[in-house]
Design a protein around this nucleic acid. Structure first.
Lengths: 235, 235
DNA sequence: ACCTGAACACCGTTCAAGT
DNA sequence: ACCTGAACACCGTTCAAGT
């Protein structure tokens, strides 16, 4: 088993398992080689370099996204497709960071992008509107969002409780939200009180409902060749 | 000038100038020291380590965001505040990556977050709705968005034109968008045909208009303590 | 064809010493 | 108080050699 000859697949599988367990920052070519009982340079026969390794890992994850059956309603189809992507990508915590770090799209990424785009267009949305809605979705179309509240206030240097007591004074509005979010949660910290899945679906629905409204209004972007101001607001 | 004694401010300024010019990946403690005509370890008297250096850089940038005068209309105020943040952050290309990499918020980040939150709450939105709208804004509240279409299809290994010719066949919907986007642009590439500022404002308005609609509908999230399904859709 | 060893040019950071 | 030198434990990758 261990001494099986290397292959690109085995390299990728091991890399993914390692990243799952130890985090993406811990994954280096040298440690991966070690994991495979092999000298670092042996990897380079199956992978062009570290970037190609990361591309390969993303390719596997994105390739695993399975589409839900189409209902014929574009909004529901898009929603389910993105939530399906989320289910897949969330299993690998590192995939968000790696995906965002890619400087070029891999084939599987293009396939997913194209199929998602198709749901809008086939649903009757104009190419114009679809284009901008895809931008508005941004990386949320992969099923994740950067959870900004996850970046809690600094608690390492000064004492954590001191920070928490100071919050209402210095940041009264954040304190209000923290209080409300902690209402049902277990503690009063800013981040962990929030339900990732709820926030994701809320944001997704805001964008999709917005798209629906603009579609009903026959929204178009102003011709980009004109030098005058563009009206980007509905109506 | 060159031989002026080191200070945290001089370290941060030099680091920012270097990142502006050479990119954030090129910035290392060793190169920064070199830039300051100093041995690497000299930096550690003014900066706790690399993470603290990056925190300091973000602190300076975010601290420079200047708020626009309030109009009394929350939507317009939020819009202008975020576009003002964008103007500041866009001057430093590296700030998006660095900000997203922070694991804890710095004081200036908390100040900005609190003032933005205040605009919603003082505008009459419920704390509940404000909370979720902030999540929906996500990192877009800093004035940038991850431009996914900037990740163009791979063009290094195989010839670029071959890729472009294959696009309509393999990814017909993307081809349609690329065609439309290139309409007024100079070339048919997937990314650079898009207007960053336009896409940013479009996405921002979708979220803010969505917030306005939910506010008018007196939207509330279902109590998080209940174990039943939550209705997250308007109406 | 596939793996290895040694080396190169980098990292961030610790520790003990200089002035 | 502030800066230095040398060292440690890492990186990704090239190149020439082994089997």
């Amino acid at each position: 088993m261990r001494r099986a000859t290397l292959s690109r697949e085995r390299v990728l599988q091991t890399a993914m398992a390692y990243a799952d367990a130890q985090g993406i920052d811990a994954l280096s070519m040298r440690r991966l080689a070690q994991e495979l009982d092999v000298v670092p340079m042996a990897l380079y026969k199956h992978v062009a370099g570290k970037e190609d390794l990361l591309d390969g890992m993303i390719e596997v994850v994105v390739g695993e996204i399975i589409g839900a059956t189409a209902t014929g309603f574009w909004k529901q189809d898009v929603r389910e497709r993105i939530l399906s992507a989320r289910k897949t990508l969330v299993r690998h915590q590192w995939s968000r960071t790696v995906l965002e770090s890619r400087s070029a799209m891999t084939p599987a990424m293009l396939d997913y992008l194209d199929s998602l785009t198709g749901l809008f267009i086939d649903g009757g949305l104009s190419v114009d509107l679809t284009h901008h809605v895809m931008h508005a979705l941004g990386n949320r179309m992969w099923g994740f969002s950067q959870e900004l509240f996850a970046a809690t206030p600094r608690s390492d240097t000064s004492s954590f409780t001191a920070q928490r007591d100071a919050l209402p004074r210095q940041h009264p509005h954040l304190a209000q939200i923290a209080m409300a979010a902690a209402h049902a949660g277990s503690d009063a910290r800013l981040g962990p009180g929030c339900d990732d899945q709820f926030e994701f679906e809320f944001a997704l629905d805001v964008v999709l409902d917005g798209a629906e409204i603009l579609h009903a209004q026959h929204w178009t972007s102003a011709p980009r060749t004109s030098s005058g101001p563009r009206d980007i607001r509905p109506r």
